[in-house]
Amino acid sequence: MRIRAPFWAPPLMAVQFLTRVPVPWLARLDSARANDAFVRSTGWLPLVGSGIGCVTAILFTVGQMWWPPLLALLVALAVEAWLTGAFHEDAVADFCDAFGGVRDAEATRRIMKDSRIGSYGTLGLGLALALRVAATLAVPGAVGIYAIVAAAGIARWCAVLLMAMAPPAATGGGVAKDIGRLPRRSFWLAAVTVLPAFTLLAATGRWTASIVLVVIAGMLVRIARGVRRRIGGSTGDCLGFAAYAGQVVVLLVVAGA
């Protein structure tokens, strides 16, 4: 019989997973229940992501009372990076180094495990951050605030979708391996918890949400095919890259709408 964690554990595990926020209640769980909570936490990732986006949006808004928009946004992103431990930024750098610099599976896996950053990782992360900043600043007023929150929630949903599309590589490790195959309930729960993000996104333009869905679908299909072909499935860095890429896509679509 499978040991299940209490109902409150998965959402709190999602908070602990995506942020530095202390969650002392999780210490009450034994290892079996903690593992179950971790696997089931995937369904809550979009909602926690939207919460992170709210923090960034509030800091950006308040910061503009003292600084120009660019400086306020950089301060907000710096605080966000501290809050999340630069979780997805690290994944972007590792993914770009691994998939940009080599072609064989063994070297790809070895580079993703290496804590050092190379030229592909530096360039990839720099361009991704620059696109995020430029796209955010290109969206004026309240629409920009909605876009920040929506992008953060949809970004984490992209990671959940990639889990479903590209199960963990057999020889991989890390987060993807710990979660294993995405539970069906978590997949559908994530589809529910991302709805607040899509509601905000719909407020930014009539066709924005539809365009985002089409672009994200194409992006994730391409990423899933690539990681399955190269290393046999996804890893934690692949999921983090998909999340950050999804966030940039949302902001770019809103900026161009």
Rank of each mutant, 00 (worst) to 15 (best):
L125F: 10
S119A: 15
K113S: 06
A138K: 04
I148P: 07
A147G: 13
G121E: 00
S115F: 00
R116S: 12
Y146A: 14
S115T: 07
A135I: 04
A142F: 09
G121F: 02
I111M: 00
R132C: 06
A152T: 00
A150D: 10
I111R: 01
T136N: 11
L129S: 03
G121P: 03
Y146G: 11
I117D: 03
A134N: 14
K113D: 04
A138G: 13
V149K: 05
Y120W: 09
I117Q: 05
L123S: 05
L125R: 08
Y146K: 14
L125W: 05
D114N: 02
G153S: 07
L137M: 11
A130H: 05
V139E: 05
V143H: 04
A152V: 11
L123H: 03
A130P: 01
L127S: 07
D114P: 00
R156S: 03
A128R: 07
G141W: 13
A151N: 09
D114L: 01
A155L: 14
T122S: 13
S119E: 10
L129D: 03
G124I: 03
Y120C: 04
Y120T: 03
V133S: 12
A150K: 14
T136R: 13
G141Q: 14
V133T: 08
I154Q: 09
V143M: 14
D114Y: 01
A147N: 03
L131C: 15
A130F: 13
V139Q: 10
G141P: 12
G124P: 12
L127N: 09
D114I: 00
V143P: 00
A150I: 08
G144S: 06
A151I: 07
I117N: 03
L123Q: 02
A135W: 04
S115I: 03
V149W: 13
A128M: 15
L127V: 14
S119N: 04
L127F: 13
L127M: 15
V133K: 12
I154A: 10
A150F: 10
A138R: 06
A135Q: 09
L125D: 05
G153P: 07
A142H: 12
A128P: 14
G118T: 04
S119M: 15
T122K: 10
A135S: 15
K113P: 01
T136V: 13
L131R: 07
A152N: 14
T136G: 06
A138Y: 01
M112C: 09
A134H: 14
I154R: 11
